[in-house]
Design a protein around this nucleic acid. Structure first.
Length: 492
RNA sequence: GGCCCCAUCGUCUAGCCAGGCCUAGGACACCAGGUUUUCAUCCUGGCGACAGGGGUUCGAAUCCCCUUGGGGUCACCA
């Protein structure tokens, strides 16, 4: 592992909503980069949109990242040498920087009203011109500017984009060049004195000594604006790396239209966290091209931003579900039970106190279904048969079809029931019963399905499921007998 | 529409930067077998891609150009 104490990266979420799954990947990659090189990973809250930012979202975002297994060296909750780490607490600093830039002539006051700007944009769109600020206030005479300011006329601060071109070497994309004339004289500070994103970001990245900026590709066009600002300040800009977007099945930026977009959504659905981390790693990055299942430690040992894919990655729920199953099945039973328990309660099939009083039974049930689970929330549904009313087991169509395939299934089942009844009363052990049953079938020169299909349907109503003797053991001899007896008249 | 980015199986990707080892590898999904009392797991096999066209070169998935296609972005949001 190479060590570079100077590396400082950050993840800067905006607390205007739940943690986006794509942002979680950005955070993960930044974190891994810092950890791999012994650098620092920091968190900064970008809450300059006061109308939409809330402290609740901020707390939830931090909690979500921590849950994933990330930790940070500096942040709003723990502070650090370059704080505060909440933009809303850094306004004095932005004002200072704004004044500096204005004094340098790198920025200017603009008195244009929202109405004029709207009209301008409308006209430009009508004439099929690119919508951009026309520079009306760019060369205002100092005297006029001072007069209007003194009169209290509202004014924003715009960045004065110089002529020329701006280029940088993106860690992922290589050389990227923008002609400055394509860059608008963008607003840095609102009329009310609060900073705009592109301005605040640069101030903070400068103050926080950020060396590498790994962020989503949607920020690519912000980069020249930010670089120009560093240059106006006479500072070197950090290394940028723009991660490929995470796409929905429609090929567009992941949105609620095509699926869940929040980290919390997947957490709520019961995806194992290690599976989430692993899956996120696979979106745009590969360990070695062959290994699909690997942990966060492998990411840290191997993550290299220059190896990240350039093309967007479609979020493949099928693969995610498969990966979830891989991790779920690796969990020790007790641990898995803790993870599934909330869903059992939520389903209404198990009372909160039963989690304790019937723990042994529930654990046994979980053990039976474990192989069929992918995510925690699937357990209640999978256990429908075990919770069923014994006289009203619901027979699925698939199970019934399997039953009808067997000639004289009713005769077989009723004969088997008579044979079975005393053995259940005598509490014959599960394994012995299984062996004896197979012998019973063989003696009658029947195929196994001739008995097992009707038996399965009668006992569980389903076409698939755990071993039948394990199932009988779970629900108990008495309940099993009731199910078999009623099946003789109900199953058809 | 302007600008920017991108382009290998349906999907995630390896290979590309340092051309030959690529009759393009792995994984998910799908299909077919095997195992099983069934389902799931597991095992085996199959299907399936270098967007198109020009170059450069002895040789191109790999380098260059064009076309086409897709995406992102164009706020006193972040």
């Amino acid at each position: 592992m190479t060590r570079n104490d100077d590396i400082r990266v950050r993840y800067a979420p905006s607390p205007t909503g739940k943690q986006h799954i794509g942002g979680a990947r950005t955070a993960l990659f930044n974190w891994a980069y810092a950890r791999r090189h012994g650098g620092k990973f920091l968190l900064r809250i970008e809450d300059t949109d006061e109308g939409r930012s809330t402290r609740e979202y901020e707390t939830a975002i931090l909690e979500g990242l921590a849950w994933l297994g990330l930790d940070w060296d500096e942040g709003p909750d723990i502070g650090g040498p370059h704080g505060p780490y909440r933009q809303s607490e850094r306004y004095a600093r932005y004002t200072e920087m704004a004044q500096l830039l204005e004094a340098k002539g790198a920025a200017y006051r603009c008195f244009c009203t929202t109405e004029r700007l709207d009209q301008l944009r409308e006209a430009q769109e009508k004439n099929k011109e690119k919508p951009a600020y026309d520079g009306k206030c760019r060369d205002l005479q100092p005297a006029e500017r001072a007069t209007r300011l003194a009169a209290g006329e509202p004014a924003v601060l715009r960045f004065k984009v110089p002529a020329g071109a701006t280029s940088f070497t993106d860690l992922i994309r290589g050389e990227v060049v923008f002609q400055n004339k394509e860059v608008d004289d963008w607003v840095m500070v609102r009329a009310d004195g609060t900073p705009i994103y592109n301005f605040a970001v640069v101030c903070d990245d400068v103050d926080m000594r950020i060396t590498h900026v790994l962020r989503g590709e949607e920020h690519l066009t912000n980069t020249p604006k930010q670089i120009l600002l560093y240059q106006a300040l006479g500072l070197a800009f950090p290394t940028f790396g723009h991660l490929p977007l995470m796409l929905g099945t429609d090929g567009k930026k992941l949105s609620k239209r095509t699926g869940d977009t929040a980290l919390q959504d997947y957490r709520d659905k019961g995806y194992p966290k290690k599976a989430i981390v692993n899956f996120l790693c696979l979106q745009g990055w590969a360990l070695d091209g062959k290994t699909e299942v690997f942990g966060i430690d492998e990411l840290v040992r191997n993550f290299d931003p220059t190896q990240v894919s350039k093309a967007g990655a479609v979020f493949d729920l099928d693969k995610f579900r498969w990966l979830a199953g891989e991790y779920l099945r690796k969990e020790p039973l007790e641990e898995l039970f803790e993870h599934c328990a909330p869903y059992l309660v939520a389903s209404g099939r198990v009372g909160r106190e039963e989690l304790v009083t019937r723990r042994a039974w529930l654990l046994q049930a979980l053990a039976l279904e474990k192989d069929r689970l992918h995510i925690y929330s699937e357990l209640p549904e999978r256990l429908t048969w075990a919770f069923a009313e014994d006289r009203a087991v619901v027979y699925s169509e698939a199970a019934l079809i399997n039953v009808r395939k067997q000639t004289d299934w009713k005769g077989t089942l009723s004969a088997y029931l008579e044979w079975l009844r005393p053995k259940l009363s005598d509490r014959v052990a599960k394994d012995a019963l299984r062996d004896a049953t197979k012998a019973w079938v063989a003696e009658r020169k029947l195929k196994m399905p001739a008995l097992f299909q009707p038996l399965r349907c009668a006992l569980t109503g389903e076409a698939g499921g755990p071993d039948l003797f394990d199932s009988i053991e779970l629900i108990g001899a008495e309940r099993a007998l009731v199910r078999l007896e009623t099946a003789l008249v109900r199953m058809a």
